[in-house]
Design a protein around this nucleic acid. Sequence first.
DNA 1: TAGGACTGGGGTAATTGGGGTG
DNA 2: CGTGTCCCAATTACCCCAGTCC
Lengths: 63, 63
Amino acid sequence: MRWGQDRMDNDNDQLMTPAEVAEAFRVDTATVTRWARAGLLNPVFTLGGHRRYRASEISDRLR
Amino acid sequence: MRWGQDRMDNDNDQLMTPAEVAEAFRVDTATVTRWARAGLLNPVFTLGGHRRYRASEISDRLR
DNA sequence: TAGGACTGGGGTAATTGGGGTG
DNA sequence: CGTGTCCCAATTACCCCAGTCC
């Protein structure tokens, strides 16, 4: 069990949609977008410009 | 793949807003905030510093 | 290619945090 | 000692619409 330890700058991590992150924090999707624009989250971008968030990063902040 | 790491005090739990908790106990939202600051509740924090309370914890204290 | 669902923006109301005070 | 209330600043929610996803 070592998926939460050795990586925080990689790409082989489960990705979450803005709606999923918003539901996890009990917050609006627009709020998740603000967090990303403020640099509080480091999302991966789709080629169309949509954000996808790393599940590891989310579960860390969820505590 | 288990993300919650079999914890019962972490995620995988519905969250409540301060207003919802206040309504459940029939108190002001300021009182709920005092309970949290006094350590009587263990809320999850949004990245903006707002508190979200675990529904399981609230329903427990409601008995 | 068409279509429904979701997202990224922006603007404006509503909620929340914190301190201080009855 | 616990709670309700008033204040202000910050954060968040809800509204729109154009663009993206699948």
